[in-house]
């Protein structure tokens, strides 16, 4: 079967943030051209982790890429600031919230 040789994939074809369609090329651009050094900065400038999953998928991958590209130990790379809500919730659920009584 033909398939794709992942070793030959262009950085622009490797999706890192699936919510915002961010690629490996975008992460490397952020690190090397814009001089960004953290998951938080890359989130803000490139929108990684601003979509539906809020970085739950891409956050650790970006930390690994930063670690590789800048030679910083992975353990030393902080995640982006977590923001509420933990998962997406409809606006009317908040607007109609009555302290947890009679919830559907």
């Amino acid at each position: 079967m033909g398939g794709i040789n992942i070793m030959e994939l262009d950085d622009r074809d490797i999706i890192i943030c699936r919510c915002e369609d961010g690629t490996l090329a975008d992460v490397k651009d952020a690190i090397h051209r814009l001089g960004l050094r953290s998951v938080e900065e890359i989130k803000r400038v490139k929108r990684f982790g601003m979509g539906h999953c809020q970085g739950k998928t891409c956050g650790k991958i970006i930390a690994q890429i930063i670690s590789q590209e800048l030679g910083i130990p992975y353990e030393d790379i902080k995640p982006a600031t977590p923001r509420q809500p933990a998962k997406n919730i409809r606006l009317d659920k908040f607007a109609n919230y009555n302290g947890g009584k009679n919830e559907d």
């Binding site: 809020q54 809500p85 997406n88 919730i89 409809r90 606006l91 009317d92 607007a95």
Partner: peptide, 23 residues
């Protein structure tokens, strides 16, 4: 979140099923 959503939904009721992702 409670206050702003209840006010905005009065002005834009069509947003009621839209999900908040971040504050």
């Amino acid at each position: 979140v409670q206050e702003v959503t209840s006010k905005v939904l009065k002005l834009m009721p069509c947003l009621k099923n839209v999900a908040m992702v971040r504050q």
